[in-house]
Design a protein around this nucleic acid. Sequence first.
DNA 1: ATACGCGATGAAGGCACGTTCACTTTCTTG
DNA 2: CAAGAAAGTGAACGTGCCTTCATCGCGTAT
Lengths: 211, 211
Amino acid sequence: MSDTVQDPKKPSRKERELQFRVGLVLDAAEEVFAETTFARASVEDIAEKAEISVGTLYNLFRSKEDLYRSVVSRAQEGFFDRVQERLSEARGPLEKVHAVVSYHFEHFHRYARQFRLYVSATNGFQWELRSMLDSEAMARQMQFRTRLIDICQDGMDQGIFKRGVPADLLAINVASLPHPFLLVWLERDTIDLMTLLPHAVTMVDRLLGVD
Amino acid sequence: MSDTVQDPKKPSRKERELQFRVGLVLDAAEEVFAETTFARASVEDIAEKAEISVGTLYNLFRSKEDLYRSVVSRAQEGFFDRVQERLSEARGPLEKVHAVVSYHFEHFHRYARQFRLYVSATNGFQWELRSMLDSEAMARQMQFRTRLIDICQDGMDQGIFKRGVPADLLAINVASLPHPFLLVWLERDTIDLMTLLPHAVTMVDRLLGVD
DNA sequence: ATACGCGATGAAGGCACGTTCACTTTCTTG
DNA sequence: CAAGAAAGTGAACGTGCCTTCATCGCGTAT
């Protein structure tokens, strides 16, 4: 019998060809999903960009959601693989942390498009158009940011905050410092948010360089 | 002629009643939008929760998008108003920064539901279900986090990183430190991402407490 | 050369949902 | 109290889009 039992490590030519084709489709899907949200991206657009028909797309993936998951997963895998690489090259904790931070910058410098997917993978967010925001809301947002920049500038001028970083970057970092804490809180709904506050204060103080 | 010219400062009873009703509808809409994304939230659900018909909803708001904008705008306004309050009470830059951070915690402790809207307003993100993520992707995410926690713990044990904060919180802060920089970069597409890296490194060093 | 099988195709099905509008109910006013 | 205005209603409409499936084209084996 022509029992085509293959070496399980080495998939057949057919199999490899399939994986290659799937990869091309994922490329196209990544491009489309990166441009908008999951809901707004259309299967037809993806099929067209991949130069296959919608039917074929559904032969390769069970559903739009399945396709999206695969795209995000692949992008995330690529990202983390490279981070791990850097981590294993780096010696000592400080160097390792620097490697992680640096690689974030390098990665999105190269694959700028993937940023939306990255956010989706790490936080469960999806992008929406900024234009969804009221112009009033935009204005308030800007006003608040300016206010915070001024405060940081004052602190530095008065020698209370450590110098060495532009005031606007410092301000933006301060403003987004609560976010990771809030995300942690949402993740484990057992903990009380307020118990995290002291730690957050410690972290801002470090950012500002106050003892 | 019964020219009902009103004192422009004091709207008519009708007008005030309308505003009150609009407020109730916004409450309902906030609840629904906070539960899912803009795309997934349905106008019918909102109308039902507000105990009005879909038609009435469309008498009050031009479109679903208009409604969403109003909800976000109102939530954001409430948030910023209170922050400004705290800011004006606080004396000196450090106290002001502390006030801002503290209020983030207080606010979402009280209005936990608004978190999604807050993110939407500040970053232009929308939430998606976590379940959209591959289980593999989840695992990778977790693995990376654990790796980073270990590194932070090592650093603290070796006396390289400053103590005083749980290793997991430190790790999460390190991991999300690049985010504000990336958002700044996306906002002003004129700048080169890599020019921001040195500042990011400075900020991590401060977070870690290395000189 | 012919028959067979497997993947590709895209038009049609079906559904979900935003929006409208003719009709009804409620309120106002003379 | 009646007539007219204003506001409320929800069924119907239109649109967009995911998914399916009968059909087709092409390579392979006999």
